[in-house]
Design a binder for these strands. Structure first.
Lengths: 125, 125
DNA sequence: TTATCTGCAAACATTTTGCAGCGAG
DNA sequence: CTCGCTGCAAAATGTTTGCAGATAA
């Protein structure tokens, strides 16, 4: 594990919402463990490959990252207010996807399911 | 409806796979109804707003467009080989999303579900 | 030393915007 | 004349790459 990877992981440990690479880089810039933007991107790529962090593309096309809890396949429930995230496993969905695909003669390669909404505490405001 | 919108729609009528804006622009460039890239983007934006075309972001971040069949909320089954697309409605998924969200105290704002795989004819090759 | 990591600057790709000209009503 | 449509060129954005120097095994 490289210095950049350690720094990025530390930044992600901070909270568990999805953060952009630029965001992480900015946070690190002013800390004692500053890392170049390039290295942040490279570290994130490795960490995603190692399944240590999840990556989700926002609706505006930006990639965002988050330390992930399990290396099982899972989906996310993301609060648009505060960024809080719940990881959910969804065997029913996996089954449904396979079924519908077969029904149309498709062999599934991959699928994505992301849900955004407002969490309880943000809804109260 | 503007000239650009008509041209883009005509290009999309050609086949019913998801195409990038650049792709559509290139196709039109050599036709008798050439349109500037800017106008292609602007036309696509309007058409998406009018729910005449669907938009899906590829895993590489590119936006792709396709004439869409219904203005009901639906999901896609996209063949990675030939781009063939099936629109599927999924009441079961909608229900599941709402349920899981409620369970975690979330109010759903939106969700995306895209499935990619190989269609029958591409699998045979 | 040899391989790997780092980070600046530059390249890249896609999409958006500023603005002047054009054309329809 | 006026207003919206057009499209070039330039900006903006987010990400990746080339490369030379730093670092570590």
């Amino acid at each position: 594990m490289t210095r950049a990877q350690r720094a990025v992981l530390a930044a992600l440990a901070h909270d568990d919402t999805f953060r952009s690479a630029q965001d992480i880089h900015a946070q690190l810039r002013d800390s004692d463990s500053a890392v170049g933007l390039t290295s942040v991107y490279r570290a994130l790529q490795s960490l995603v490959e190692a399944r240590v962090v999840d990556v989700v593309r926002t609706s505006s096309g930006e990639l965002t990252y988050r330390r992930c809890g399990s290396d099982e396949h899972h989906h996310h429930l993301v609060c648009t207010g505060c960024g809080a995230t719940v990881e959910v496993e969804a065997p029913a969905i996996e089954r449904w996807v396979a079924e519908v695909a077969t029904e149309h003669g498709y062999v599934v390669a991959s699928h994505t399911l992301e849900v955004t909404g407002t969490c309880r505490s943000c809804a109260e405001m």
